[in-house]
Nucleic acid binder design. Sequence first.
RNA 1: GCCGGUGUAGCUCAGUUGGCCAGAGCAGCUGAUUUGUAAUCAGCAUGUCGGCGGUUCGAAUCCGUUCACCGGCUCCA
Length: 648
Amino acid sequence: MINITFPDGNVKQYKKGTTSMEVAESISKGLARVILVAGVNGETKDLQLPINNDAELVFYKWEDDEAKDAFWHSSAHLMAQALEELYPGVKLGIGPSIDKGFYYDIEMPGDKIFSENELPKVEKKMKTLAKEKNSYNRRPVTKEDALKYYEEKNDKYKVELINDLEDGTITFYNHGNFTDLCRGPHLPHTGYIKAVKLMKVAGAYWRGDETREQLTRIYGISFPKQKMLDEYLVFLEEAKKRDHRKIGKELELFAFSEKVGAGLPLWLPRGAALRERLEQFLKKVQAEYNYEPVITPHIGQKELWETSGHYAKYGKDSFQPIMAPDGESEFLLKPMNCPHHCEIYKLKPRSYKDLPVRYAEFGTVYRYEQSGELHGLTRVRSFTQDDAHIFCTPNQLKEEFFKVIDIVLYIFKTLDFKDFTTQISLRDKDDKEKYIGTDENWEKAEKAIVEVAQEKGLKTITEYGEAAFYGPKLDFMIKDALGRSWQLGTIQVDYNLPERFELEYTGSDNEKHRPVMIHRAPFGSMERFVAVLTEHTAGKFPLWLCPEQVAVLPISDIFNKFAKKVSNILKNNDIRSFVDERNEKIGKKIRDNELKKIPYMLIVGEREQEEGTVSVRRQGEGDQGSVKIEAFAQMIKDSINKELSENK
RNA sequence: GCCGGUGUAGCUCAGUUGGCCAGAGCAGCUGAUUUGUAAUCAGCAUGUCGGCGGUUCGAAUCCGUUCACCGGCUCCA
């Protein structure tokens, strides 16, 4: 007999070799129906796997991430089976579950191209196969047998994978006539997969290496109920409506012109107003933290970038040098502001008493991103960083770092960014060639970041290979409407550039010392920040407003059905206009009961206005009054709630 | 850069197997009406069908090429 411990602490005895599924059945049929995989001593396992020793047992249902993983992974196998039947000779790469669904990388037989219009065919096949309720069977194999199987099948990708595995740890899973190299775990059988949608086809390099073959990656998602799939598709549709590229166009925040060039955003009056407001907000915060604004040119001599290390690292892939008329002097568009700031630091001898020195600049930089990388405002070729560089003594590093974290968190809080992740971005362990500086400096810098994050009590994830080329980073990541993660705020510790630029200060011991440099940008870039801000506020209802007069009231057409009501409410409350002069046109629209045609409203607080207020014009009176933002927000909220409940 | 897709008036789109002067709604402009704006009605205009080259008697529709955008991959100082 073995003891099974349940999450609530209960212990029950079962026969040795009992499966998790049997345990579940012994508790209740209902439970057995909804569970998908089991956690045995903390490891996720198949429900059919016998338990041979005392164990702690957890059941995972669809709601649990462990279950979704298995569900989607099993779906990937199902898709692979369908593909093998439809396209005999197809070679399989890898097919994991992902955040939302699954994919499989395949190589089509011959020169065949798999295009999107074949997806329905594969979907249909998957559904047919799923109905066979074939069970997923786990089977350990020796490395020799595994290799033999795939060599006979002529599947070079699997052979490569197996070669990297250790003998004795290899398992196959099969269901129906399909076998795959796989660690598991899986669902009990294919019948669990009731709804399938194949989303898109994309190219993906084998093992993420751009020098290797490009496989076809097929993305899909599946659910245990058709209704869940329908809901998911609706969610995707609605997320699309919050896309900053769509809203940016509709609201005339920004635009691109083919003639100006790809990835070079044009800020339109309304977008510029919003951006300016954000800049003023941050400038005010930075002034309180004793930052000193500086302004530097957009170009610098090639030599500057050779010193910084940029030229050697990125020179080839950057905008190419600008030549002076003498045909000799070369200048580069700046890809970052640090070297200019270093030169400012160097202008005069510094004493430890002068430190820390904090130079801030909204600096526009130019990076030649690959054409396929450009993406709305989130990835562009010219963008403005809310940059600052702090030069301090090693002893001051932590305190300065803490203060920067405070600024970032303050901004996020003010703008209502709750759902962000904090990432420690360290050097790639294996490929150190990508970075400049000594191991010693890197270790110091990485240690500093890890400690600071810990002491600050931040929940962090650690990613290797995500560091900047001169130092490790603490990054603040936010998701966009479709769940794609973007780095916004970033704080970086740098021992390397001070060395390259030979920065110094005189210490209390009258000796020369090297300062440490913190690079930081709480927004990241104005472009990306406005993009993510737009997506975050769109569709949020009721409005949010912040006391710094950065006020945005978006009503996406998700709420279009309320638009008319809102318009009526504004009327009933005698609110005629609540936008500043630059947005007079939107104000007019609202007055004109045309709200349904303008699904978003953007409010940018008025320049000469008392903090924390918005201006309100009342019907029949020419004068303009101000009300507290909170009061105004409440007024709108109350009215809408009242309106909605009356109309029920 | 790579794989797949898209590109028609300011916006959202329709354009049958290549064939009459390329269409609709919204926005715009002019005028009328007046219930205060809103609205309503009448009328007007609008596009080198992304660019270039080709096939054809004839192309928005077929082919090539190029640019831009979209979804991914790689990249991201």
